[in-house]
């Protein structure tokens, strides 16, 4: 916390649909990081998905309905935080666009001001400079597109990773190039998506790190899925898991617990 005089920040966790369904560990890691940084974290049950599948498919009506539902579910929190640059970008940058000119315009704008991506929230808002975690081994970090270009998430994760005891960051070539996930793109144009992710896994492999990290589960599942198909032994995790010291759980695709 930058100021001790302020009350404990009350954070609403936007879990994201992929974390909810595929990798709850990321959600718990996010909660742990924020609680350790002095926040109270709550999880509104009325959330589902940020609405990107509809928004990016041209279905504005459903996207707007989901936006209103999400804004309503997170009313009253000091902050709304998502362990994903893509979903946080949707909430922060695209909800106001989507609801512009409607009765919800000012609510969407106010909501937008409270939304943050997890790692940027820790560093830029809470002023966290170090995490008490340890991770033995080397990692490489992929910059997911929305977090990078919509929310300027780039230095923050590297800053915190540098404070993880025992962790060796080996940068890959072009960490800022898309992995080919692109939401529904990867199933609508699987062959093109495959070509893009092949290039990505080649840079990942060339970096020579044992573990791949990123801040978005969609990208991570895409890269992990390709690495696994290629027979790679590189482990894949959300950056929050390592920052929270929760790397004792199986990596993505490591089997149920």
């Amino acid at each position: 916390m930058k100021e001790d005089t302020r009350k404990t920040p009350r954070v609403g966790l936007f879990v994201t649909c992929l974390v909810d369904l595929f990798r709850p560990t990321v959600g718990f890691a996010a909660v742990k990081l924020m609680e350790e940084a002095g926040c109270t974290v709550e999880v509104p049950m009325a959330q589902t998905c940020c609405g990107q599948p509809a928004y990016n498919s041209g279905d504005r009506e459903d996207a707007a309905a989901i936006a209103r539902q999400t804004i309503e579910a997170f009313e009253g929190f000091d902050y709304v935080v998502a362990p994903s640059g893509s979903c946080a970008g949707m909430l922060k940058k695209h909800y106001p666009t989507l609801l512009k000119g409607t009765a919800w315009e000012s609510r969407a704008d106010a909501f937008s001001g409270r939304v943050h991506e997890l790692v940027s929230f820790l560093v830029d808002v809470l002023g966290v400079t170090a995490v008490p975690a340890a991770h033995r081994g080397s990692v490489t970090y992929h910059d997911s597109c929305s977090g990078l270009r919509e929310l300027n998430v780039q230095k923050q994760p590297r800053k915190l990773l540098a404070t993880v005891e025992g962790l060796d960051l080996k940068e890959m070539a072009n960490p800022d190039v898309c992995c080919g996930f692109g939401g529904t793109f990867c199933v609508k144009y699987p062959d093109i998506s495959n070509k893009i992710v092949e290039e990505k896994t080649a840079s990942i492999a060339a970096a020579g790190a044992e573990t791949l990290l990123a801040g978005d589960l969609g990208c991570l599942m895409n890269m992990a899925g390709k690495l696994h198909r290629q027979g790679s032994r590189i482990k894949v995790r959300h950056v929050a898991e390592v920052l929270a010291g929760m790397d004792d759980t199986p990596a993505i695709g490591g089997g149920g617990r």
């Binding site: 879990v15 974390v19 909810d20 369904l21 595929f22 990798r23 709850p24 560990t25 959600g27 718990f28 999880v43 049950m45 699987p190 062959d191 998506s193 495959n194 992710v197 599942m221 895409n222 992990a224 899925g225 390709k226 696994h228 198909r229 199986p250 993505i252 695709g253 089997g255 149920g256 617990r257």
Partner: peptide
């Protein structure tokens, strides 16, 4: 072109 990781367990919620 790629494998799909199975969900870890029950949902986060």
């Amino acid at each position: 072109h790629r494998d799909l990781p199975a969900p870890e367990a029950r949902t986060f919620m």
